[in-house]
Design a binder for these strands. Structure first.
Length: 569
RNA sequence: GCAGCCGUAGCUCAAUUGGAUAGAGCAUCUGACUACGGAUCAGAAGGUUGGGGAUUCGAACUCCUCCGGCUGCACCA
């Protein structure tokens, strides 16, 4: 089933070909303003510029060669040479009727399925997940969901930070100051306490500093006792992370942390040096990128003077492992924008090593504190992710209690979770991923305006109509539209498959979020203007069909964002 | 110092990547409630897109130049 956009583009290509004009200029987009029509093309203006012709004159020629009479009104020319299209009501009715019978709501599978590995979330062991992890976690999950739905073979991998210098302090603290009761009740809190305690001791006590370093060296050289402690901290931390992932309904196919690649680091360095890709410089082993101007003076260090390995080393070993294990067509790294240089380097290095996968750094903006500075993990002043989720559900619960007293308490609890968590996810996904923003409870947990509850409420209204109707929509009904509000809603519905693929074009879930907001908005307007249950049997059947399709589209779109819909709220 | 990102309504953000009169939400104001659930709808007001210049039919978007903010840049991850 072609979308209107595909239909129009196809016809425009035919017209351009007939005129001997290049077909790749046949670009049709949704109209910027509904007053102009439903779709528009700027092809005449673009081509007029190239051929030095009068744009309106060319538009007239294109129009003469263009045949869309079977599904649209006669196109019009406006302004400098815009060609505007308006779909016929008959076409919209037929099209929306066929969507109602399609389990995929009009979305085709991708013609070029890929195996895609998505690397996201990546919390650090022995540290709590904080607001800074929200973006990677929610964005990565959403992109994985959309890619899967479109037919890609997706592997999600949580590359957790389970190896590093912090373990010297943690192990030292574990051996001297561990509070087993505290560990039992909140493991990460206790591990953080140990880390901070040892850090403060080190400031004044040289012995502590030295011993902590020795614990790290022992761990790295395979000391059984320290390895056992390390493993416990990893397991305990993961248990806490898992609670949050469960709450957020996020799953990983793989959970290979940094430690998984330890044994690969030395051989990797050896082989890179042997192949002449890495060289010694100032005592360290480096990869230089002399052919890339931007990186000409930015080598990647893969082995320190003291023999230790670095972030870049692990990432390169990870790429090598993943390439062998999965043979992915693409690897997506959902990691903050400040690491752009790092990824530029390791991607360049991977290229030198012969990696043929498409490597993408899907960057996102930073979450800032009140001072407009990035919230640092290390400052410890960060708001915890668990805290955010708890507060979100709490705020939603108060709202549900105030507005929906008649709903039983246990149902209300589930509704509060659905609304609160949906609000947090939507707040993230509805804005451009590259935008920095100042952390704000009121913004993240807002329940009014362009928020998840607005979309969920549209769904709830639909469910309520069906509860009262006492029947489902009849799938054999022809959805013949008759009202402007119906038409606007139906048009929105058939644009769903035009929207979903855009998300992966530039990794922008906000395009889908915006679409769903507009869909919900069109439904709410329809709801006010077009009575369903009180209408004549014919119109009632049509409108029930439109409601059913709207409900399915809303629920489906929200599920791609990782957001659930309540039956009532 | 070099590089990258950013500056849009009072506030928080969009803008299909060069398209038409720059759009939403919040806040403010005016209407619609014994409601197919008002967590809604209809409307008003709010802008020299940081300043200046250039390119062209057309610029928030491209180029130049100032101003301001953030980030990264050799042994943390």
């Amino acid at each position: 089933m072609s979308t209107p956009q595909e239909l129009l583009t196809g016809r425009l290509r035919i017209a351009l070909a007939a005129l001997g004009l290049p077909q790749d200029k046949a670009v049709v987009v949704q109209a910027a303003d509904s007053r102009f029509g439903d779709y528009q093309t700027n092809a005449a203006m673009v081509l007029a510029k190239e051929t030095r012709r009068n744009p309106r004159e060319l538009a007239n020629e294109i129009l003469a060669a263009l045949d869309v009479a079977d599904f649209a009104d006669i196109p019009t020319i406006a302004g400098a040479g815009f060609v505007n299209f308006r779909l016929s009501d008959v076409f919209i009715s037929k099209h929306v009727t066929s969507l109602a019978a399609d389990p995929r709501l009009g979305n085709a599978l991708t013609p070029s399925p890929k195996r895609i590995l998505v690397d996201f979330s990546s919390p650090n062991v022995a540290k709590p997940m904080h607001v800074g992890h929200i973006r990677s976690t929610i964005l990565g999950d959403c992109l994985a969901r959309v890619a899967r739905f479109l037919g890609h073979d997706v592997v999600t991998d949580n590359h957790i930070g389970d190896w590093g210098t912090q373990f010297g302090k943690v192990i030292y603290g574990w051996k001297h100051f561990l509070d087993p009761v505290a560990l039992e009740s909140d493991a990460i809190r206790e591990l953080v306490r140990l880390y901070r305690h040892v850090t403060s001791l080190e400031e004044t006590d040289e012995d502590v500093r030295r011993t902590a370093r020795e614990e790290l060296v022992k761990l790295q050289s395979g000391d059984p006792e320290n390895l056992a402690i390390w493993k416990q901290t990893v397991d305990l931390s993961w248990r806490e992370f898992q609670k949050l992932y469960d709450e957020l309904d996020i799953r990983f196919d793989e959970r290979l942390g940094e430690s998984s690649y330890n044994d690969l680091l030395a051989p990797l360095c050896h082989s890179l040096k042997a192949r002449g890709l890495a060289e010694e410089s100032e005592g360290a082993l480096c990869i230089f990128f002399r052919d890339i101007p931007a990186l000409a003076e930015k080598p990647a260090i893969i082995r320190k003077t003291d023999g230790g390995f670095l972030y870049a080393t692990t990432d390169l070993a990870t790429i090598e492992y993943r390439t062998k294990r999965w043979q992915p067509d693409a690897i997506w790294y959902v990691v903050g924008a400040p690491q752009a240089l790092h990824f530029h380097q390791i991607f360049a290095a991977a290229c030198l090593m012969g990696c043929s996968s498409e490597l993408r750094h899907i960057a996102f903006g930073s979450i800032l504190g009140e001072d407009r500075k990035i919230m640092k993990t290390r400052s410890g002043e960060n708001v915890g992710l668990a805290e955010v989720l708890t507060e979100a559900v709490e705020r939603a619960r108060k709202m549900v209690e105030a507005r929906s007293e008649t709903i039983p308490a246990e149902v209300r609890e589930d509704i509060a979770r659905t609304i609160g968590l949906g609000a947090v996810k939507y707040a993230e996904l509805s804005q451009n991923r590259l935008t920095d923003y100042v952390f704000s409870w009121d913004k993240l947990l807002a329940l009014d305006g362009n928020t998840a509850p607005y979309l969920q409420n549209a769904y709830v209204r639909i469910r309520s109509i069906f509860r009262r109707a006492g029947e489902d929509a009849d799938p054999s009904t022809s959805l013949t539209i008759s009202d402007p509000a119906e038409r606007a809603l139906a048009l929105k519905l058939l644009q769903y498959p035009e929207t979903v693929p855009l998300v992966l074009e530039d990794f922008r879930p906000n395009l889908l979020a915006n679409y769903l907001y507009e869909l919900a908005n069109a439904f709410h307007s329809f709801y006010e203007a077009c009575p369903v249950l009180k209408s004549t049997p014919e119109i009632r059947a049509v409108r029930l069909g439109i409601c059913a399709l709207t409900g399915r589209t809303l629920a489906h779109g929200l599920s791609l964002l990782g957001i659930r819909c309540p039956e009532q709220m």
